[in-house]
Design a protein around this nucleic acid. Structure first.
Lengths: 345, 345
DNA sequence: TTTAGCACTCAAACTAATCAAGTGCTAAGA
DNA sequence: TCTTAGCACTTGATTAGTTTGAGTGCTAAA
């Protein structure tokens, strides 16, 4: 559809605009492009590109900026991920080099690294098996009136919560409840557990506890949290950099968005094995109209698939960002493989 | 030092300015004040107030706004806390009315309530005994390679952390370590524990574990966290409302400030039993130059003393805010007393 | 197909003019 | 001695008008 020359121009428009933020005009392009044609020719080509909806003007006599469709074409056909800068490699190596005692530390640290590399906001999700199953449940008495409920899944997730109980803690009762849970529910997927929890369990538990509701609440809480994907977020504050015309309201809705696990999960969407770029209003969420989201999955063999993502202004240098995300997913997968190898074998 | 009339004028200037944000002029005051003098008289009085540094002009022919000293005088001598609005009472009652299973839920909820009432940012700190002591330590094996460390203090704080260990978990070893900790350290204050942890403990632990360092790290982590005061923050996003001229940098430093426990602890300062107001640059921290902080302590009998605080623009309606903070501290203390009574007796 | 040339558009930056709110000061009155 | 009417003056905000510069589309010729 596009001639070679048009592609070259589109690429240059995106490059220039993402670097400088200023609409680019025909003269600047004529000077800069490797081919040697006059600005009038460029203008004609630009008119053609505009015709196809790939670039647009900010006002009738301005230079051009890419439209969402233009970015899309650029990302799909024209961009080549930049190789990492030596400096970036150092950052990754040193930040991911240390000793970690749990997966979550690595994942959370990764969000920070990614946000540092990009100076945008980053999200990371740890590798997950598709349907993780309940693998254990404990109630640990902590003191006079305090109990900690601990729930473990077969993918190694741990959720816990302490709560207070009135009256003395009866060790017998606790044991019985724990046994009940472990007998009836271990091995089921979390949604299945949740279903049973609403169906037969309450009646059974009533045999052991005089006031089962409190316990069911707690267990439900912990379970729900375990069932939720837990994103780590790095560089939250970087969003402030792009609050064009300091629109406090949209900033607020943006922040409430990224702080709600469910919302952010739905925005990040399904894992797919390639790197995906979503641009501006390609995301249905209105708060993200001026943002782009790059997501990528990473595989850690039998331990499942995780996800990393960065959220920045639509006007981001895609080639560099794609380079960073692409390289980082591999580094992270490698690091996690090492980690699992160390602790599993 | 100030005449009655001057006080009246200062009070009116602060009231007007905090309500409208517009510098107030002599004419408006003359119309509004209960005494009946001309604007020229008011002007003379204002000149006197300015002489004393209590009010100032934004430019040579503008109306007056209070200076930090003016706010201070107002807060110290002129303000009378507003009674709560019926609506506010409802909010408190309904948000604090539900059932809670742990102190922290009440405290964290309180931060949210306070921020809702004030539309500023609120901090809450749970009641603390002066030197809380280690009252228990557990290591709970969770799965193949996972262990959870749990630390409990005598004031009911619980900190926990999971970590992975290489090689099989040896129940014997864990028991021995737990016994060691409980024998040697329970009953000590946390700083004392920390000191011992660096002195004699490592050698002793080396008897039971082949690689004690990992364990010591974890234990140190959990301990440090337990020793830190944990503030709950409500209404973070409200800070965005006051980012005058949308200065991204100062906003960023503000946010990094309130997210660092140690920093915010030092800003909030020592508990004192009255309600305290710190205004603008009375706080040394530069990021807070345009903010005021109202802190108040609350007592829960033998369970110690907690703190609540709100952070808003220097230009805040102090009478209303003082009313809210004063009323809320009492509501909270009452609620907590009930809570303790229910679970303790 | 390319390009020089030209008329045209528009945002941004600057200037000038006006307005409204407020001040300080002076001199007269109570 | 305190109060006040009156007045000259200052200042930020608003508005309208100009200028500038970067850019465009279009036409006609190469």
């Amino acid at each position: 559809m596009l001639s070679e020359r048009q592609m070259m121009i589109l690429r240059a428009v995106v490059r220039d605009f993402t670097n400088t933020g200023v609409p680019v005009g025909s003269k600047a392009l004529a000077k800069q492009l490797p081919i040697h044609v006059s600005s009038a020719t460029i203008r004609n080509e630009m008119a053609a590109l505009e015709e196809q909806g790939l670039i647009k003007k900010t006002h009738s006599s301005s230079g051009r900026i890419p439209s969402v469709e233009g970015y899309r074409y650029y990302v799909d056909h024209l961009v080549k991920p930049d190789p990492l800068r030596p400096n970036d490699i150092d950052v990754i190596q040193s930040s991911l080099g240390g000793d970690f005692h749990k997966i979550d530390e690595i994942i959370s640290q990764s969000a920070t690294i990614l946000s540092n590399l990009t100076s945008y906001t980053a999200f990371t999700l740890k590798p997950e098996l598709k349907d993780s199953r309940l693998s254990g449940f404990r109630l640990v008495p902590l003191g006079k009136r305090q109990i900690m409920a601990i729930l473990v899944t077969d993918s190694g997730d741990v959720e816990n919560q302490t709560f207070d109980v009135a009256g003395d803690v009866d060790g017998e009762q606790l044991e019985a409840v724990v046994r009940l849970i472990n007998d009836q529910l271990v091995g089921l997927t979390l949604p299945e557990v949740l279903k049973k929890l609403q169906a037969e369990i309450p009646a059974q538990i009533a045999n052991y506890l005089q006031s089962p509701q409190g316990f069911l609440d707690i267990f439900g809480d912990v379970l729900t949290r375990a069932a939720q994907e837990r994103f780590y977020v790095g560089g939250r504050l970087n969003l402030l950099n792009f609050s064009q015309d300091s629109d406090v309201d949209s900033l607020k809705s943006l922040y409430s968005l990224i702080d709600k696990t469910d919302d952010i999960a739905s925005v990040l969407g399904q894992p797919s094995d390639k790197i995906s770029v979503r641009i501006g209003n390609e995301m249905t969420n209105d708060a993200l109209r001026n943002f782009s989201l790059i997501t990528a999955t990473y595989d850690v063999d039998q331990h499942g698939q995780g996800m990393i993502a960065i959220l920045g202004p639509t006007r981001m240098p895609y080639s560099r960002m794609l380079g960073i995300v692409g390289a980082f997913r591999e580094e992270l997968a490698k690091k996690l493989l090492d980690y699992y190898r160390f602790y599993d074998e």
